[in-house]
Nucleic acid binder design. Structure first.
Length: 815
RNA sequence: GCCGGGAUGGCGGAAAGGAAGACGCAACGGACUUAAAAUCCGUUGGGAGCUUGCUCCCGUGAGGGUUCGAAUCCCUCUCCCGGCACCA
């Protein structure tokens, strides 16, 4: 028997697949379509285990769906713009373009070696001008629709990456890429109005099956908060101050107001205040203090009294106005009404500055309203000290107060979101140039569409310093205004790379298009993506931006669907020794080493078998050896079967029953939740069983071959190479890729006797053999013939007999 | 604090409300071998008993509940992971 030689087999079949263009997308509108997509890789040096897991899962789905007669789109591309290319440029003195394309060649070779069934004709490379041209085109469309604007604002500045970051890219006050603490820097930036789509992004009804946690993360990120704006009149400056609250029911408990130091009314108030010196000192100190986003979280609550008063909209009382460091200008109206009795922050502030505390919500557990509170009571209760609202339940009171305020024009219903507009400017070279021109006569004008792409110049000096390298490339910078023709200058910032990945999945539908980003019919046929697979780390970033992009494109008539990804699977990480694989921890396992040692099929099998896809997978050298043994067993069994000549039919029906059961089980496990680990367990069980049957020689050659062919087909999506080799050696001419997934009949049970559990009062007491067609009564009579059960049951009053077919019988007796 | 997800042998993990621990790993015993590797065949949740292959008890983070029957459903709690958080 020939030894299992994975490398030889795998390379042979990969070559054959390529030569026959097996995975090329076919034009076939009769079949049902299925778009299976894995998140494209960032073009860093090479593939790691996380990629192997991601792409293997996708490949199993793709091959399974093809065999189930779907028309498949399964593309791949490269997320090729971004900072690491520039860092490499500085470090290794290599051009970012060269570095990137070199890496793409490596990754492509590795993906091919993994045997993933991609349609290679549809590669997308985001740093290709033919691709980023459309980033610029979309930018201009967004600009024309008023969804793009420029403003100077405090930006998240990463001192290590020397560029700004979007809010989504700041994690715990640190840069998502390098972990450096993010600073604030005032810069002119381009923004996309994602906030206009906040409400639609909160609507997940167009999504079929996403992990609950991803939806929660997006909801948290958008952070919708429904409440009420309330107007307080300030007579001394004749202005109305608007505050936002979600607790209008506590309005009568307001004892002071607090403004953010950045609030627009602060200046006016300071002017007329008798305490202006103190205020100025305070504000200056606060503005200087808040350097990093992290610091803000730790700062102690402080404030200053303006000695100016506002009028309470209901009681007409004079309410003191303070300025406090804990009120954010970026959220709500930048001013809050303080209710120290029912908000812990306000409570602490009031204690510190001796401000009054007025209880207006009665905790149902209180017998009486306490003189003094230990801490704020933040829950709901009965409204007290609240004039006409007394006695109302505070939940209901919220509505009532709001309605009343609306009636007297002192407030209105209002909604705020945590979500901020998407800052897409990056002061870097290796990205899509923002197609904007600054003309001394016309101002800010977008580049003419027919001049796209605005190409990145190749000649550039990359320094890694805080300004875009494009500023120093004269040929790039100098241009003509597309409106008036005068000498003008280009924008030198480039786009966030998340713009690239917000629509790449649309480009795959028709990568050949030259005059359009994509063909409308093709995109509307293939999209939405039926199954998207990728890491959880993009739960907010990429997945939110893509949803937003598609919604805008729909509104502009480019596409006719609302959601890009109907089903999402977030695969878990591959970890070793309890930690994510990383160079710094020295626990990296290189996929190429594993392929050399065991072959791709074994690697794929292990990665699918060790855990369900969405759970973190602990790397185990012993575990992969187990999978290696399994494939060797399959291989040996295959040649045994070829030499097998037995005619004995005694167990033929049993074998047919078993393969039928396995096919059914695996089909269901894949359809249900992509439970590849249990699929593989079932195939292992079958192999154990078949091995025994062959040794006992109670099955006939004809049936063994028939069942074995079915087995090869169901193993195929998991370990395609070894299966093709076995298939071919059975004189089969077709690629398994073009074979149909085996069908299964509803199980005919052939056994004459089945074994069921016996429970007495729900407690398992043993088991008994019964003919399959017996009912509860007949089984009960059998039990009476059995020494053991007879002893327990005899003489007792039988209350109930419950028979669960093929599983167990439960006799309920009186004790 | 709010929201979401978890907790099952020595380990990774299985289990329509119906025999908990499939499958794999590790461990142990045996076969083959001069020997080892490889391979094959057994045993393997914990505890107790004896007549040694059978009987009993306990067991899915903890405690209650529903049910003939709960890892699974409900309530309370503990711990772990993830997200959001001076968000008004």
């Amino acid at each position: 028997m020939e030894k299992y030689n994975p490398e030889e087999i795998e390379i042979k079949w990969q070559k054959k697949w390529e030569e026959s263009e097996l995975f090329k997308v076919k034009y076939n509108r009769e079949k049902k379509k299925f778009y299976i997509l894995e998140m494209f890789p960032y073009t860093s040096a090479q593939i790691h285990m996380g990629h192997v897991r991601n792409y293997t899962i996708g490949d199993v789905v793709a091959r399974y769906k093809v065999m189930n007669k779907y028309n498949i789109l399964h593309p791949i591309g490269y997320d090729a713009f971004g900072l690491p290319a520039e860092n490499a440029a500085i470090k290794q003195n290599i051009h970012p373009k060269e570095w990137t394309y070199k890496n793409i060649d490596t990754i492509r070779r590795q993906l091919k070696r993994l045997g993933i069934s991609y349609c290679w004709e549809r590669e997308v490379i985001t740093c290709d001008p033919e691709y980023y041209k459309w980033n610029q085109y979309f930018f201009i469309q967004f600009f024309k629709r008023g969804l793009v604007y420029k403003k100077k604002s405090p930006a998240n500045w990463c001192p290590s990456c020397q560029t700004v970051l979007a809010n989504e890219q700041v994690i715990d006050g640190k840069c998502w890429r390098c972990g450096e603490i993010v600073e604030n820097k005032n810069l002119e930036q381009w923004f996309i109005k994602i906030t206009e789509y906040a409400e639609r992004l909160l609507d997940f009804s167009g999504i079929k099956n996403w992990p609950e946690r991803v939806i929660t993360m997006q909801k948290n990120w958008i952070g919708k908060s429904e409440g009420c704006e309330i107007y307080f009149y300030i007579p001394e400056i004749d202005e109305i101050l608007s505050v936002f609250t979600t607790r209008a029911d506590t309005l009568l408990g307001v004892t002071y107001l607090v403004l953010s130091p950045y609030h627009p009314l602060v200046e006016k108030i300071t002017k007329v205040s008798s305490n202006s010196k103190e205020i100025e000192k305070f504000i200056e100190r606060i503005k200087k203090a808040s350097l990093t986003v992290q610091d803000i979280l730790k700062i102690e609550k402080e404030g200053v009294d303006t000695k100016i008063f506002a009028v309470h909209p209901i009681t007409q009382e004079k309410i003191p106005i303070w300025i406090g460091n804990y009120v954010l200008m970026e959220y709500g109206t930048g001013a809050v009404m303080a209710v120290p009795a029912h908000d812990q922050r306000d409570f602490e502030f009031a204690e510190k500055y001796n401000l009054p505390i007025k209880i207006v919500i009665k905790n149902p557990e209180w017998k009486e309203i306490p003189e003094k509170l230990e801490k704020a009571y933040e829950n709901h209760g009965i409204m007290v000290n609240s004039e006409i609202f007394n006695g109302l339940d505070s939940e209901k009171g919220k509505e009532e107060v709001r309605k009343y305020l609306e009636k007297i024009n002192k407030g209105k219903k209002s909604v705020y979101y945590r979500l901020k507009d998407w800052c897409i400017s990056r002061q870097r070279y290796w990205g899509t140039p923002i197609p904007i021109i600054y003309c001394p006569k016309c101002g800010i004008v977008p580049e003419d569409e027919k001049n796209l792409p605005v190409k990145l110049p190749d000649e550039v000096k990359i320094t890694g310093k805080g300004e875009s390298p494009l500023k120093y490339v004269a040929e790039f910078l100098k241009c003509k205004c597309p409106v008036c023709g005068s000498n003008a200058e280009r924008e030198t910032d480039t786009m966030d790379t998340f713009v690239d990945s917000s629509w790449y999945f649309l480009r795959y539908a028709s990568t050949w298009m030259e005059n359009k980003p994509f063909d409308k019919d093709e995109v509307n046929y293939w999209l939405p993506v039926d199954q998207y697979i990728g890491g959880i780390e993009h739960a907010i970033l990429h997945l939110l931006y893509s949803r937003f992009f598609v919604k805008v494109l729909k509104d502009m008539g480019f596409v006719n669907f609302e959601e890009p990804f109907e089903n999402l699977l977030c695969q878990g990480m591959v970890i070793k020794d309890g930690a994510k694989m990383s160079k710094s921890k020295g626990n990296v396992v290189d996929p190429e080493d594993m392929i050399k040692k065991y072959g791709v099929d074994t690697l794929r099998l292990f990665i699918l078998f060790a855990a369900p896809p969405e759970v973190d997978l602990e790397w185990s050298e012993k575990g992969i050896e187990g999978c290696w043994r399994f494939l060797n067993r399959v291989w040996r069994l295959h040649s045994e079967i070829k030499n097998y000549s037995e005619q004995n039919q005694e167990h033929d029906e049993k074998l047919k029953f078993m393969i039928n059961k396995v096919v059914k089980g695996i089909t269901e496990d894949i359809e249900k939740e992509f439970q590849f680990n249990t699929c593989i367990a079932k195939m292992m069980e079958f192999i154990n069983f078949l091995n025994k049957e062959l040794n006992e020689k109670k099955v006939s050659k004809y049936i063994v071959i028939e069942c074995w062919k079915k087995f090869i087909k169901i193993l195929y999506p998991f370990t395609p190479h070894i299966c093709e080799e076995m298939w071919e050696s059975l004189n089969e001419k077709n690629f398994l890729f073009n074979e149909d997934w085996p069908s299964y009949e509803e199980l005919e049970i052939v056994e004459e006797k089945i074994n069921i559990g016996v429970q007495i009062n729900g407690k398992i007491r043993g088991n008994i053999e019964i003919p399959p067609d017996f009912d509860a009564e007949k089984i009960y009579n059998l039990l009476l013939n059995n020494e053991k059960f007879k002893k327990i049951i005899e003489g007792k009053k039988i209350i109930k007999k419950i028979y669960i077919p093929n599983r167990l019988i439960n006799i309920v007796i009186e004790i």
